[in-house]
Protein backbone atom coordinates (compact mmCIF):
# COMPACT_ATOMS: atom_id res chain seq x y z
CA UNK A 1 0.00 0.00 0.00
CA UNK A 2 1.42 3.41 -0.99
CA UNK A 3 2.42 5.72 1.86
CA UNK A 4 -0.81 7.70 2.54
CA UNK A 5 1.06 10.98 3.15
CA UNK A 6 2.89 10.65 -0.17
CA UNK A 7 -0.35 9.65 -1.92
CA UNK A 8 -2.23 12.67 -0.58
CA UNK A 9 0.54 15.08 -1.56
CA UNK A 10 0.66 13.49 -5.01
CA UNK A 11 -3.08 14.14 -5.41
CA UNK A 12 -3.03 17.72 -4.18
CA UNK A 13 0.30 19.09 -5.37
CA UNK A 14 -0.47 18.71 -9.06
CA UNK A 15 -3.90 20.28 -8.66
CA UNK A 16 -3.94 23.84 -9.87
CA UNK A 17 -1.67 25.44 -12.44
CA UNK A 18 1.36 26.58 -10.41
CA UNK A 19 3.44 23.39 -10.38
CA UNK A 20 2.37 22.63 -13.93
CA UNK A 21 3.58 26.07 -15.01
CA UNK A 22 6.92 25.68 -13.19
CA UNK A 23 7.45 22.24 -14.76
CA UNK A 24 6.59 23.52 -18.23
CA UNK A 25 8.84 26.57 -17.84
CA UNK A 26 11.79 24.55 -16.54
CA UNK A 27 11.52 21.86 -19.20
CA UNK A 28 11.00 24.52 -21.88
CA UNK A 29 14.13 26.43 -20.88
CA UNK A 30 16.19 23.24 -20.59
CA UNK A 31 15.03 21.92 -23.96
CA UNK A 32 15.57 25.31 -25.61
CA UNK A 33 19.10 25.56 -24.19
CA UNK A 34 19.94 22.04 -25.33
CA UNK A 35 18.40 22.69 -28.75
CA UNK A 36 20.49 25.82 -29.22
CA UNK A 37 23.69 24.05 -28.25
CA UNK A 38 22.98 21.24 -30.73
CA UNK A 39 21.98 23.70 -33.48
CA UNK A 40 25.13 25.74 -32.94
CA UNK A 41 27.26 22.62 -32.92
CA UNK A 42 25.77 21.42 -36.19
CA UNK A 43 25.56 24.54 -38.29
CA UNK A 44 28.62 26.45 -37.19
CA UNK A 45 30.90 24.13 -39.11
CA UNK A 46 31.19 24.64 -42.90
CA UNK A 47 30.75 20.91 -43.58
CA UNK A 48 27.89 20.42 -41.08
CA UNK A 49 30.08 18.00 -39.18
CA UNK A 50 29.09 17.43 -35.58
CA UNK A 51 31.55 17.71 -32.73
CA UNK A 52 30.59 15.24 -29.97
CA UNK A 53 32.66 17.32 -27.57
CA UNK A 54 29.81 19.85 -27.57
CA UNK A 55 27.51 17.18 -26.16
CA UNK A 56 29.91 16.66 -23.30
CA UNK A 57 29.74 20.37 -22.46
CA UNK A 58 25.95 20.21 -22.72
CA UNK A 59 25.89 17.22 -20.35
CA UNK A 60 28.07 18.94 -17.76
CA UNK A 61 26.14 22.22 -17.96
CA UNK A 62 22.74 20.51 -17.71
CA UNK A 63 23.85 18.32 -14.83
CA UNK A 64 25.39 21.32 -13.02
CA UNK A 65 22.16 23.29 -13.43
CA UNK A 66 20.18 20.37 -11.98
CA UNK A 67 22.63 20.08 -9.10
CA UNK A 68 22.33 23.80 -8.35
CA UNK A 69 18.56 23.51 -8.58
CA UNK A 70 18.59 20.72 -6.01
CA UNK A 71 20.87 22.44 -3.53
CA UNK A 72 18.95 25.69 -3.74
CA UNK A 73 15.36 24.44 -3.76
CA UNK A 74 15.37 21.28 -1.62
CA UNK A 75 15.77 23.16 1.70
CA UNK A 76 12.92 25.50 0.81
CA UNK A 77 10.67 22.63 -0.26
CA UNK A 78 11.31 20.32 2.68
CA UNK A 79 11.94 22.68 5.61
CA UNK A 80 8.20 23.25 6.01
CA UNK A 81 7.16 19.61 5.78
CA UNK A 82 6.53 18.92 9.48
CA UNK A 83 6.38 22.50 10.78
CA UNK A 84 3.79 23.18 8.05
CA UNK A 85 1.63 20.37 9.43
CA UNK A 86 2.06 21.85 12.90
CA UNK A 87 1.18 25.36 11.70
CA UNK A 88 -1.86 23.98 9.87
CA UNK A 89 -2.85 22.05 13.03
CA UNK A 90 -2.95 18.73 11.22
CA UNK A 91 0.07 17.10 12.86
CA UNK A 92 -1.83 15.80 15.91
CA UNK A 93 -4.41 14.19 13.64
CA UNK A 94 -1.58 12.39 11.89
CA UNK A 95 0.18 11.35 15.09
CA UNK A 96 -2.92 9.69 16.56
CA UNK A 97 -3.27 7.41 13.53
CA UNK A 98 -1.65 4.00 13.18
CA UNK A 99 1.10 5.42 10.96
CA UNK A 100 4.54 4.99 12.47
CA UNK A 101 6.82 7.99 12.95
CA UNK A 102 9.07 6.52 10.24
CA UNK A 103 6.20 6.35 7.72
CA UNK A 104 5.17 9.91 8.49
CA UNK A 105 8.73 11.25 8.16
CA UNK A 106 9.42 9.28 4.96
CA UNK A 107 6.05 10.28 3.50
CA UNK A 108 6.72 13.95 4.17
CA UNK A 109 10.33 13.74 2.92
CA UNK A 110 9.49 11.92 -0.30
CA UNK A 111 6.42 14.08 -0.92
CA UNK A 112 8.52 17.22 -0.60
CA UNK A 113 11.18 15.81 -2.91
CA UNK A 114 8.65 14.43 -5.38
CA UNK A 115 8.42 17.66 -7.35
CA UNK A 116 12.19 17.96 -7.63
CA UNK A 117 12.24 14.33 -8.71
CA UNK A 118 9.63 15.17 -11.34
CA UNK A 119 11.82 18.00 -12.65
CA UNK A 120 14.89 15.75 -12.77
CA UNK A 121 13.03 12.87 -14.41
CA UNK A 122 11.37 15.37 -16.76
CA UNK A 123 14.76 16.53 -18.01
CA UNK A 124 16.05 12.98 -18.45
CA UNK A 125 15.17 12.99 -22.17
CA UNK A 126 17.22 16.16 -22.62
CA UNK A 127 20.14 14.67 -20.68
CA UNK A 128 19.74 11.54 -22.75
CA UNK A 129 20.31 13.55 -25.94
CA UNK A 130 23.95 13.30 -24.99
CA UNK A 131 23.54 9.54 -25.11
CA UNK A 132 21.70 9.76 -28.45
CA UNK A 133 24.48 11.77 -30.08
CA UNK A 134 27.13 9.55 -28.57
CA UNK A 135 29.79 10.33 -26.08
CA UNK A 136 28.35 8.96 -22.86
CA UNK A 137 26.60 5.80 -21.73
CA UNK A 138 23.01 5.81 -20.49
CA UNK A 139 24.22 4.10 -17.31
CA UNK A 140 26.35 7.19 -16.63
CA UNK A 141 23.31 9.45 -17.05
CA UNK A 142 21.38 7.28 -14.60
CA UNK A 143 24.30 7.31 -12.16
CA UNK A 144 24.35 11.10 -12.31
CA UNK A 145 20.60 11.19 -11.56
CA UNK A 146 21.17 8.77 -8.68
CA UNK A 147 23.92 11.00 -7.31
CA UNK A 148 21.61 14.03 -7.48
CA UNK A 149 18.83 12.14 -5.73
CA UNK A 150 21.18 11.10 -2.95
CA UNK A 151 22.23 14.74 -2.47
CA UNK A 152 18.57 15.77 -2.46
CA UNK A 153 17.74 13.09 0.13
CA UNK A 154 20.63 14.20 2.35
CA UNK A 155 19.61 17.87 2.29
CA UNK A 156 15.94 16.91 2.58
CA UNK A 157 16.47 14.72 5.64
CA UNK A 158 18.34 17.52 7.43
CA UNK A 159 15.55 19.95 6.50
CA UNK A 160 12.85 17.57 7.74
CA UNK A 161 14.70 17.16 11.04
CA UNK A 162 14.87 20.93 11.58
CA UNK A 163 11.24 21.09 10.57
CA UNK A 164 10.46 18.62 13.37
CA UNK A 165 12.26 20.53 16.10
CA UNK A 166 11.63 24.15 15.14
CA UNK A 167 8.15 25.60 15.13
CA UNK A 168 8.90 28.17 12.47
CA UNK A 169 9.65 27.07 8.91
CA UNK A 170 11.87 30.12 8.31
CA UNK A 171 14.29 29.02 11.05
CA UNK A 172 14.57 25.56 9.50
CA UNK A 173 15.25 27.01 6.02
CA UNK A 174 17.94 29.34 7.38
CA UNK A 175 19.69 26.54 9.27
CA UNK A 176 19.71 24.20 6.27
CA UNK A 177 21.20 26.91 4.06
CA UNK A 178 23.88 27.51 6.70
CA UNK A 179 24.67 23.79 6.77
CA UNK A 180 24.76 23.78 2.98
CA UNK A 181 27.18 26.72 3.07
CA UNK A 182 29.38 24.78 5.49
CA UNK A 183 29.29 21.72 3.22
CA UNK A 184 30.01 23.65 0.02
CA UNK A 185 32.41 26.38 1.19
CA UNK A 186 33.31 25.47 4.77
CA UNK A 187 34.83 22.13 3.78
CA UNK A 188 37.02 23.77 1.10
CA UNK A 189 38.18 26.41 3.57
CA UNK A 190 38.79 23.76 6.21
CA UNK A 191 40.87 21.78 3.70
CA UNK A 192 42.87 24.67 2.31
CA UNK A 193 43.27 27.23 5.13
CA UNK A 194 45.48 25.12 7.43
CA UNK A 195 47.82 24.58 4.46
CA UNK A 196 48.13 28.32 3.88
CA UNK A 197 48.82 28.93 7.55
CA UNK A 198 51.43 26.18 7.67
CA UNK A 199 53.18 27.53 4.54
CA UNK A 200 53.90 30.74 6.39
CA UNK A 201 55.25 28.72 9.29
CA UNK A 202 57.26 26.44 7.11
CA UNK A 203 59.68 25.77 9.91
CA UNK A 204 57.14 23.43 11.49
CA UNK A 205 57.55 19.89 10.38
CA UNK A 206 54.27 18.34 9.46
CA UNK A 207 53.30 14.81 8.76
CA UNK A 208 52.50 15.05 5.04
CA UNK A 209 50.66 11.75 4.80
CA UNK A 210 48.23 12.57 7.62
CA UNK A 211 47.78 16.03 6.11
CA UNK A 212 46.79 14.47 2.76
CA UNK A 213 44.29 12.24 4.49
CA UNK A 214 42.86 15.23 6.33
CA UNK A 215 42.37 17.16 3.07
CA UNK A 216 40.79 14.20 1.25
CA UNK A 217 38.44 13.36 4.10
CA UNK A 218 37.42 16.99 4.64
CA UNK A 219 36.43 17.29 0.98
CA UNK A 220 34.28 14.13 0.95
CA UNK A 221 31.10 15.84 2.28
CA UNK A 222 31.37 18.65 -0.30
CA UNK A 223 28.57 18.17 -2.88
CA UNK A 224 30.31 20.39 -5.46
CA UNK A 225 33.64 18.56 -5.28
CA UNK A 226 31.80 15.23 -5.38
CA UNK A 227 29.75 16.34 -8.40
CA UNK A 228 32.79 17.36 -10.44
CA UNK A 229 34.62 14.24 -9.29
CA UNK A 230 31.78 12.20 -10.81
CA UNK A 231 31.93 14.26 -14.01
CA UNK A 232 35.68 13.62 -14.16
CA UNK A 233 35.12 9.90 -13.61
CA UNK A 234 32.47 9.77 -16.35
CA UNK A 235 34.10 11.99 -18.98
CA UNK A 236 37.77 11.60 -18.14
CA UNK A 237 37.93 15.36 -17.69
CA UNK A 238 40.21 17.23 -15.32
CA UNK A 239 38.06 19.45 -13.15
CA UNK A 240 38.88 18.32 -9.61
CA UNK A 241 40.19 14.75 -9.45
CA UNK A 242 43.53 15.09 -11.25
CA UNK A 243 44.10 18.52 -9.71
CA UNK A 244 43.70 17.01 -6.28
CA UNK A 245 45.86 13.98 -7.13
CA UNK A 246 48.68 16.15 -8.40
CA UNK A 247 48.32 18.55 -5.47
CA UNK A 248 48.56 15.77 -2.92
CA UNK A 249 51.03 13.69 -4.95
CA UNK A 250 50.68 10.81 -2.53
CA UNK A 251 51.98 7.32 -3.11
CA UNK A 252 49.37 5.82 -0.81
CA UNK A 253 47.09 3.80 -3.10
CA UNK A 254 44.16 3.84 -0.65
CA UNK A 255 44.29 7.61 -0.46
CA UNK A 256 44.53 7.94 -4.24
CA UNK A 257 41.56 5.62 -4.67
CA UNK A 258 39.50 7.78 -2.31
CA UNK A 259 40.48 10.94 -4.18
CA UNK A 260 39.55 9.36 -7.51
CA UNK A 261 36.22 8.24 -6.09
CA UNK A 262 35.24 11.18 -3.92
CA UNK A 263 31.78 11.06 -5.51
CA UNK A 264 31.28 7.52 -4.27
CA UNK A 265 32.50 8.37 -0.78
CA UNK A 266 30.22 11.39 -0.87
CA UNK A 267 27.22 9.20 -1.74
CA UNK A 268 28.05 6.94 1.21
CA UNK A 269 28.40 10.01 3.43
CA UNK A 270 25.03 11.32 2.18
CA UNK A 271 23.40 7.94 2.83
CA UNK A 272 24.72 7.88 6.40
CA UNK A 273 23.60 11.48 7.07
CA UNK A 274 20.18 10.72 5.56
CA UNK A 275 19.74 7.66 7.78
CA UNK A 276 20.87 9.57 10.86
CA UNK A 277 18.57 12.54 10.32
CA UNK A 278 15.58 10.36 9.43
CA UNK A 279 16.13 8.48 12.70
CA UNK A 280 16.43 11.76 14.61
CA UNK A 281 13.27 13.10 12.94
CA UNK A 282 11.33 9.96 13.90
CA UNK A 283 12.46 10.43 17.48
CA UNK A 284 11.58 14.11 17.45
CA UNK A 285 7.97 13.68 16.29
CA UNK A 286 7.15 10.62 18.39
CA UNK A 287 5.14 12.07 21.27
CA UNK A 288 5.49 9.07 23.58
CA UNK A 289 9.01 7.97 22.76
CA UNK A 290 10.21 7.81 26.38
CA UNK A 291 7.76 5.13 27.35
CA UNK A 292 8.61 2.94 24.39
CA UNK A 293 11.83 2.09 26.18
CA UNK A 294 10.05 1.73 29.49
CA UNK A 295 11.68 4.82 30.98
CA UNK A 296 10.03 7.68 32.80
CA UNK A 297 9.46 11.02 31.17
CA UNK A 298 12.48 13.29 31.15
CA UNK A 299 12.27 16.06 33.64
CA UNK A 300 13.12 19.62 32.63
CA UNK A 301 16.88 20.41 32.77
CA UNK A 302 16.66 22.44 35.95
CA UNK A 303 14.88 19.66 37.82
CA UNK A 304 17.38 17.07 36.63
CA UNK A 305 20.27 19.17 37.95
CA UNK A 306 18.51 19.69 41.27
CA UNK A 307 17.87 15.96 41.50
CA UNK A 308 21.54 15.18 40.94
CA UNK A 309 22.60 17.61 43.65
CA UNK A 310 20.16 16.07 46.10
CA UNK A 311 21.41 12.59 45.28
CA UNK A 312 24.98 13.74 45.85
CA UNK A 313 24.07 15.10 49.27
Amino acid sequence: MMNPVLRREAVTSLRGWKNFAVLTFYLGVTALGAGMVIYTGMFDNWDFSFDPQIMMVLYVVLAAVQMALITLTVPALTAGSISGERERQTLDLLLVTKMSSFSIVMGKLLASLAFILLLIVGTLPVLSLVFYFGGIKISAVLLMVGFMLMTALMLGSISVFFSCIFKRTVVSIMLVYIIMGVLCLGTILAAVLPLAVRDYNAVNMINLESEYWRIALTLIPNPGVAFFSLVDAQLGSNIVTRELLSMLNSKNSALNWIVENIWMMNMLFDAAVTALFIALSCRAINPVREHRHGGAERKPKKERKKGKKKEAV
Partner: peptide, 20 residues
Protein backbone atom coordinates in the same frame (compact mmCIF):
# COMPACT_ATOMS: atom_id res chain seq x y z
CA UNK B 1 -7.51 21.36 14.05
CA UNK B 2 -6.83 22.27 10.46
CA UNK B 3 -7.60 20.72 7.12
CA UNK B 4 -5.54 20.29 3.97
CA UNK B 5 -5.94 22.53 0.96
CA UNK B 6 -6.95 21.17 -2.43
CA UNK B 7 -8.48 18.03 -0.96
CA UNK B 8 -12.05 16.86 -1.48
CA UNK B 9 -14.15 15.45 1.37
CA UNK B 10 -13.91 11.85 0.09
CA UNK B 11 -10.17 12.22 -0.53
CA UNK B 12 -9.76 13.56 3.00
CA UNK B 13 -11.52 10.52 4.42
CA UNK B 14 -9.62 8.21 2.08
CA UNK B 15 -6.33 9.71 3.30
CA UNK B 16 -7.13 9.00 6.95
CA UNK B 17 -8.43 5.53 6.05
CA UNK B 18 -4.98 4.96 4.55
CA UNK B 19 -3.25 6.12 7.72
CA UNK B 20 -5.12 3.38 9.60
Amino acid sequence: FGVYDNLKVTEYMDFYAGTY
